[in-house]
């Protein structure tokens, strides 16, 4: 087990280094370089040169990379001239909100998708399975923002239950709960369709396994077979999917944040893209990528705990 965990940690570390190199390369692909991006096209050559010296941009690339990576490690992601704020301060303010939104939505999505997939796999090809599969496929084929818009129309315009914006987030707990309802429901539904599909096919595959026949011949009831045997074995594949879906969910979060004006890292990223605020953009990409890698690492380790077969591979 220790060897498995260490191996996965090593792999995650390599991936994080690779991500940082990619971000660094993008930094240097910017037309005119980072300095032009910060000072604008009208800056004089002298100003450009002064900032280049100040930021150490005239030194060899590997050394620049190491200084940049060392600074990033210590939480120094540079300065946003557009927002007049340290990028790390902005990150500390906005990223936890996105983390919160993503985590809660995923939790709800899993809690909904697992019983649903179990039921659908058990009732395979019956009318209720077809209805659910059809609904899920339609949701799966909707752009996330359209899903949000449909929810706004139904739960805000037709039935005025929830507010259509979450821009007041952080006021108080009661305000937050109603404000967050629509963003969370949207992001959750966007994922349910994805998980329940896989859960259903995992359940169908597991129901054909020998151990189910054995349990049945021992006289176990349907409910026991489903809940004690099939559920645990089907959970494994859904758990892997949870890790793989992280980047997808965080992308969905950006859309949801933009739609509902939820002040998270996604909204900050979108606003910064419009003002071409590259220090902020690259800081967010780096932090979110590292969080995704860590999330995947946790899922993989959990996977090893639940399913002993994985550790041997």
């Amino acid at each position: 087990m220790i060897r498995y965990v260490l191996g996965r940690c090593g792999q995650a570390l390599i991936t994080i280094v690779a991500v940082s190199i990619i971000v660094f390369i993008i930094l240097h692909l910017l037309p005119g370089g980072l300095v032009r991006a910060q000072l604008g096209q009208k800056a004089s050559p002298i100003q450009v040169h002064a900032l280049e010296v100040q930021e150490g941009l005239l030194r060899p690339l590997p050394i620049q990379y190491l200084t940049w990576a060392w600074n990033a490690l210590r939480g120094n992601f540079g300065y946003s001239y557009k927002l007049s704020e340290n990028v790390s301060t902005l990150l500390a303010q906005y990223v936890p909100r996105t983390f919160f939104l993503v985590a809660i939505s995923l939790l709800f999505a899993v809690a909904l998708a697992i019983p649903m997939g179990l039921w659908q796999g058990y009732r395979r090809n019956k009318p209720d399975d077809h209805t659910l599969s059809g609904t899920m496929l339609i949701m799966y084929s909707m752009p996330t923002f359209l899903l949000g818009v449909v929810l706004i129309v139904v739960l805000n315009i037709w039935l005025p239950i929830f507010p259509s914006t979450a821009s007041n987030f952080g006021g108080s707990l009661t305000v937050d709960a109603t404000d967050l309802a629509l963003p969370i429901i949207t992001l959750c539904l966007a994922n349910v369709s994805y998980f329940s599909r896989y859960m259903r096919s995992a359940v169908i595959d597991n129901l054909l396994e020998d151990y189910v026949r054995t349990a049945r011949s021992k006289g176990a009831r349907n409910r026991t077979i489903l809940l004690r045997h099939v559920l645990r074995n089907s959970l494994n594949s859904t758990l892997t999917l949870l890790g793989l879906s992280l980047p997808y969910t965080v992308s969905g979060s950006l859309i949801v944040e933009a739609l509902f004006n939820y002040p998270g890292a996604g909204l900050l990223f979108w606003n910064s893209a419009q003002t071409r605020d590259f220090p902020v953009l690259l800081g967010i990409v780096l932090v979110i990528a590292v969080m995704t890698v860590l999330g995947n690492l946790i899922v993989d380790i959990l996977y090893g705990v639940i399913d002993p077969r994985v550790r041997v591979r």
């Binding site: 390599i14 991936t15 690779a18 992308s251 990409v285 979110i288 990528a289």
Partner: peptide, 22 residues
Amino acid sequence: MRIVDALLSIPFLFFVILLASI
């Protein structure tokens, strides 16, 4: 494969928006 892993761990929409803003 590590290159693919690294690129996959950047949420695709962030990556696309970053490229589209360049």
